[in-house]
Amino acid sequence: MARPDTAMRILNAARALFEREGAGSVSMRRVAEAVGITATAIYRHFPNREALLEKISDDSFDEIARHWNAHRQARDPIARLLATQQIYLDYALAYPHLFDHAFLARRRNARRFPEDFIAAQSPTANVMHEAVLEAQASGQLRAGDAWGLTMTVWAHAHGLIALQRAGRFSFDEAGFRAFFTTSLHHLLDGLRA
């Protein structure tokens, strides 16, 4: 009989492999060896490798959303918007393989803009969108399509991180962080009311 925590042990072992070596390293055999079970036993908890990888990605989205939600109480919406992007950067630098799989790889169940975002199905984008709406209401950001502005900020941050992940900057981590922050400020200055 399987122990009640087997699914979590499988997930933790798969995530550890994923974080160390990327999605390609996550095989049922390697996960089973790490957990001390047979590879076929994994299928009692996850129907296939893709479901296991999807669960890892979904959990990583939830982690980011929890961090972003913690900044919802900040009074200044611009500071809150910047904080969300710093958390995004922190995540990308701390968990590069998870970031790549969650945000750079094509995934069947990935949320799509505009319909999924407008339907509030993205817990991470929802926090950014709220900050943009509040910044518009307070006169800090220009009026107009709030989702368009939200996606502009996110795409800017995402593009910088993707370029960094591709080795297109020669900065060390501290230098890239400084460049990233300055670049976001430039973007937001251009979006001010």
Rank of each mutant, 00 (worst) to 15 (best):
R49D: 11
A83Y: 08
P77G: 05
L89N: 04
S60M: 00
L89G: 04
S60H: 02
H45M: 10
L53P: 12
P96M: 03
R108V: 15
L98P: 01
N69D: 12
Y95L: 10
A39D: 04
H71W: 03
A94Y: 04
H67I: 09
Y43R: 15
D100K: 15
D59I: 00
Q86D: 14
L52R: 11
E63K: 03
W68S: 08
A51I: 07
R49S: 11
D62P: 01
D59K: 05
D100P: 11
Q73G: 06
L53C: 11
I37A: 01
L82N: 01
E50G: 01
Y43P: 15
A102T: 15
H101Y: 15
D76V: 01
L93A: 15
P96Y: 01
P96L: 01
E63Q: 09
I56L: 08
A102K: 13
H67S: 04
D62W: 10
I87H: 14
S60G: 00
A94W: 03
Q86P: 07
Y91D: 15
H101D: 15
L53F: 13
Q73L: 11
I64Q: 09
F46T: 12
H97F: 13
A65E: 07
H45D: 05
E50N: 04
Y88N: 06
L52M: 13
A51P: 00
L52A: 12
L52G: 11
N48D: 15
H45I: 09
A105S: 15
A79I: 09
A105G: 11
E54A: 04
Y95T: 13
S60D: 07
I56T: 02
W68P: 00
F46H: 13
F99H: 14
F46M: 12
L89A: 14
H71N: 10
F103I: 02
E50C: 00
R66K: 14
S60P: 00
Q73T: 01
S60F: 00
R108D: 14
R44T: 07
S57T: 07
A83K: 09
T84M: 08
D59T: 06
E54Y: 04
T84Q: 04
H45E: 06
A41Y: 12
T40P: 08
A41T: 14
W68V: 09
T84A: 09
N48H: 14
Y91W: 13
R106A: 05
K55F: 12
A65S: 10
E63H: 05
R44Q: 07
N69T: 10
H97V: 09
A65N: 05
S60I: 00
F103R: 06
A74F: 00
L52W: 07
I78T: 08
L104G: 01
K55A: 15
N48K: 13
F103Q: 01
S57N: 05
A94F: 08
D62Y: 09
L82K: 04
A92D: 06
R72D: 05
I56H: 02
L93C: 07
I78N: 09
I42R: 04
A39T: 01
L53D: 12
N69I: 04
H101E: 15
R75V: 07
Y95F: 14
R44A: 11
E63T: 05
I37F: 02
Y88Q: 11
T40A: 13
I56S: 08
L82V: 06
E63A: 03
D90A: 03
F103M: 00
S57C: 09
F103T: 02
N48P: 11
H71E: 10
A51R: 11
L93F: 04
K55W: 13
I64V: 05
R107W: 06
F61C: 00
